[in-house]
Design a protein around this nucleic acid. Structure first.
Length: 484
RNA sequence: GGUCCCAUCGUCUAACGGCUAGGACAUCAGGUUCUCAUCCUGGAAAUCGGGGUUCGAUUCCCCGUGGGAUCACCA
């Protein structure tokens, strides 16, 4: 069956990584069945919408390779809206929601409510005080027709509320199985607000119906309000889609992953130099394991392998150390050209040739940002203290001698473009001289890199070339002489 | 608090009702090595508790316990 799935974020200006995960799952399911992945914008809360919020979300989806087939998408560097069942933005569908809200009123399934917020607050407080479930008291449920018409005529502010019938809802959840909720737990929700906008509950039902959504994938936090949606589908005489409530992403303290406890915007990981493949892999495998025999997948593999029934029921604590590891795995697998391409946005552009730096640094860095910042010590010698030139098992005098020997040897080399050959022949020479490798390689490496921790001296020579290498060695010798 | 959801190493996860409960991250100890990283070897580390059902429960059922979500004119 061709699945039509959707991702329906609020345009709040960022894509939460939990949102990215549900979007990805919806994307996989649609692609796998040859269906359609729809991106709809839920901007029924005027206070929450942010300028440029749509573009930001859609762009992030594009960057991770999950472009929607329908609704909003980012194509050729531009934000576009496409598809036959739009508009795909709720603020542009207000007439439609009003129409069905009024139909519900006509059918006796909803009613006008003129209660003030103050009154609502009061009864809520009273109910809480009495340890009762805060619920609407149906004050406006049975107003006389004339009364209603008179209030409407005099422009009294109103909302429309659904009238929840007695009974219970059975949710057939694709991840959790059957969940039963008694309607005594379900409040008479407002479905049309006094500003003329629908609430989520009405809008989601109307849109999922007219956009022909077959499976709704959303966060577990929606499970308790699913009966409201089922009831509305039923009242309107429409078939409800299938539901899949995915487990929550958690902070280390097991609370719902929040902004407060770390960076949760997907794009910020992109901006911090994590490659899209790693982010997709990391987020997709939180609460879901395609094959259980490996950790790393290519993004396309998820389309084939994805299976909703294999998604776990319990929440997952997000462990960013594992993301670091994963990102390094992907980086190490990339060839130099690929990596150079990915690195571009993180460079100033005046670094010059960085191919050989990438070669020697890629297994040492976790992110593209780290890799970019590893370039500097090759391009320009960083200042350092003379005493770090001395190997722990050696002394300053030896260091000077060894640097001089090394200088002479390097000066005599004519092939510096083969790292394997370079290392092998120099080690052979060291052995022939009867020198302790540490005595010579430690000071040489520090002289070349300016750091106690760095790639090997061979790698440095390979990258910076003979002239620069000789200069750095001379510099080190001077430091040692001047310092001691 | 009501309702609902959930429960395997610190974390992410495997295990038709049947191996010594497997893998990964992190961690620890070694090896390779001039250092770091990579790589290799090894260690420690889990089925929340109690009852059932069964020849046999991580797995099925019940009760506890613990955690979470949710109870708006927010989504």
């Amino acid at each position: 069956m061709k699945e039509r799935t959707r991702f329906a974020p609020s345009p709040t200006g960022m894509l939460h990584i939990g949102g990215l995960r549900t979007a990805l799952y919806a994307f996989y399911l649609a692609r796998q069945t040859g269906g359609s992945f729809v991106l709809r914008i839920e901007d029924t809360d005027q206070a929450r919408s942010v300028e440029g919020g749509i573009e930001n979300i859609v762009k992030t989806l594009h960057r991770v390779g999950a472009d929607p087939d329908e609704g909003f998408s980012y194509v050729d560097g531009e934000l576009i809206e496409r598809g036959d069942l739009g508009p795909y933005q709720q603020s542009k569908r207000l007439d439609l929601y009003r129409k069905y809200a009024l139909k519900l009123v006509d059918d006796g399934n909803a009613h006008y409510c003129f209660c003030s917020r103050e009154r609502l607050d009061e009864i809520r407080k009273a109910q809480q005080k009495a340890k009762q479930q805060p619920k609407y008291d149906r004050h406006c449920c049975d107003l006389e027709k004339e009364d209603i018409e008179q209030k409407l005529a005099s422009d009294t502010p109103y909302v429309i509320r659904m009238k929840v019938p007695e009974g219970k809802s059975k949710i057939q959840d694709m991840i959790r199985g059957e969940v039963v909720i008694d309607h005594s737990e379900v409040d008479d929700q407002v479905i049309l607000k006094s500003d003329g906008f629908p609430t989520y509950h009405l809008a989601v039902v109307v849109d999922d119906h007219f956009m022909e959504i077959t499976t709704v994938i959303r966060g577990e936090e929606w499970l308790p309000s699913t009966p409201k949606h089922l009831i509305l589908f039923n009242m309107l005489g429409w078939d409800a889609p299938k539901f899949a409530h995915v487990p929550l992403l958690l902070n280390p303290d097991k609370s719902k992953l929040s902004k407060r406890q770390g960076d949760v915007a997907a794009e910020s990981y992109l901006d911090r130099g994590y490659v899209p493949e790693a982010i997709v892999n990391f987020v997709s495998t939180l609460g879901y394991n395609p094959t259980a025999d490996r950790e790393i997948y290519e993004p396309d593999e998820f389309i084939d392998l994805f299976n909703l029934s294999k998604v776990k029921k319990s929440g997952a604590v997000v462990n960013f150390e594992k993301l670091d590891w994963m990102n390094k795995q992907y980086m190490m697998e990339m060839d130099t050209d690929e990596l150079k391409n990915r690195l571009k946005p993180f460079l100033n552009g005046d670094e010059g040739d960085v191919d050989r730096i990438i070669e020697v640094e890629k297994s040492r860095q976790n992110t593209l940002v780290d890799l970019a910042s590893s370039i500097a010590p090759f391009k320009k010698l960083q200042d350092y203290d003379a005493h770090i030139l001395i190997w722990k098992k050696s002394d300053g005098e030896t260091a000077v001698d060894m640097l001089k020997e090394a200088r002479e040897y390097i000066d005599g080399l004519d092939r510096l473009d083969d790292i394997v050959l370079l290392e092998a022949s120099m080690k052979q020479w060291i052995k022939e001289q009867g020198i302790q490798t540490g005595d010579i390689l430690w000071p040489l490496r520090v002289a070349l890199s300016g750091s106690e921790r760095s790639p090997s001296p061979f790698e440095y020579i390979y990258v910076i070339g003979k002239t620069e290498a000789l200069y750095r060695i001379d510099n080190a010798i001077n430091k040692l002489k001047g310092g001691s």
